Amino acid sequence: MNMKIQHEDPPAAGGGAGSPRPVTSAVFLSEEPSGLNEGASFLQKLSEPELSALREAGTPRQVCAGAGVFHQGDAHSGIWLIERGVVRTFYVSPAGREITLALWTAGHFVGGPEVFGGGTHIWSADAQEDCELLYLTGGRIRGLAETMPRFAICLIEGLVAKGKCYSALVQMLGTRSVTERLAHLLLIFADTSGRPEGNRLVIERKLTHDQLANIVGATRQWVTMTLDKFQKRGLISVGRQQIVVENYDLLRAEARA
């Protein structure tokens, strides 16, 4: 398996209708959509020989859509580099309530923060579609960090990007109403996977009301009701297979209310 390392800076999101469509991006609640894919190229400083050493240290894993990658409460044993597909990280409360933390795409890794192993996972991860991953044990990661200074720097930068992600998520959950979070999430999906059609943006990721609810911290029923309100006001239109942003500026105003 060849590592599909991104060697270009991820494109900025947030351009609104008519903007060039960016590559598939990670998604999480954040005030700054331009930083969503910041960690996707964390290994780009490695040379080809260093990338080869990284490949040799890892184990390719195929994970089918819907299958778990790791589970909350499991012992930390290493990290998974995403080669292809989308991996969701999520937390389940003692009462059984679930919240999606992020959707990670190619170039990112999951399984931190205990990258050297030890402790237990404080959230879970599952494959949202068929995925190709490269698994690195904590021992292999430590060995690479001790013998390959540039890898150690890359690893730190990857962890910094993850820290920013979860800080942004906490800020959004703590300072924005659930209605604002839903409007903001629709903007993020429009910016990262929106196909322009005139002044409209067709969100090309298939999104269920359950998925949206788990990201913004609401119930499916509330999301259905609020999407209907947005539609009646002309902000969006909702079909069986897609959501279309009809008025980007009004939706952005709703997100900033």
Rank of each mutant, 00 (worst) to 15 (best):
E38D: 11
G73L: 13
T147D: 08
A183F: 09
E48Y: 10
G174K: 12
P22W: 04
A152Y: 01
I188T: 08
T89C: 12
V86H: 05
E129M: 11
Y135H: 10
V86S: 05
Q128V: 13
E8K: 14
F42T: 02
L201Y: 02
H76W: 02
I153W: 03
G119F: 08
A12E: 12
T59C: 06
K162L: 07
F230W: 08
Q171L: 14
I188M: 05
L169S: 05
G163M: 12
V202H: 05
T100Y: 06
I243S: 01
E204R: 13
R61G: 00
S25T: 11
I236A: 01
R84N: 11
F109M: 10
W80C: 03
R233E: 12
L46N: 04
I82E: 02
V245G: 02
T105K: 10
Q231F: 00
L51E: 05
A57Y: 03
I188A: 02
A125W: 04
L81Q: 09
A255F: 11
A75C: 05
F230P: 03
N214I: 07
S193W: 03
L134V: 13
V160Q: 08
E38W: 09
E129K: 07
E50K: 06
Q62A: 14
A190M: 01
F230L: 13
E254D: 06
F28D: 00
L201T: 03
A40E: 07
I122R: 14
E38N: 09
R150C: 07
R205H: 12
S19R: 12
F230D: 02
L144T: 00
L36F: 11
L235R: 10
G163L: 13
V245S: 01
Q128H: 12
A152M: 05
Y135A: 07
C64E: 13
T226L: 07
F28P: 01
T192N: 01
A218D: 12
F70Q: 02
G217E: 04
H209T: 14
V170L: 15
G119A: 10
R142P: 00
V86P: 00
H209D: 14
L51I: 15
L136Q: 03
Q62H: 14
R55C: 11
S41E: 04
Q72N: 09
E146R: 03
E50C: 06
R150W: 06
G158R: 06
R97E: 13
T24P: 00
K229H: 11
E50P: 04
S177H: 11
Q211L: 15
S47L: 12
V223T: 15
S41K: 07
A75K: 12
Y248Q: 03
L159E: 02
A102T: 15
S52E: 15
T137Y: 01
S34A: 15
A26P: 02
G111V: 02
R55P: 00
V63A: 09
R176D: 02
R256P: 00
R256E: 15
G174D: 11
C131P: 07
E56S: 14
A40Q: 11
Q44K: 15
K206D: 10
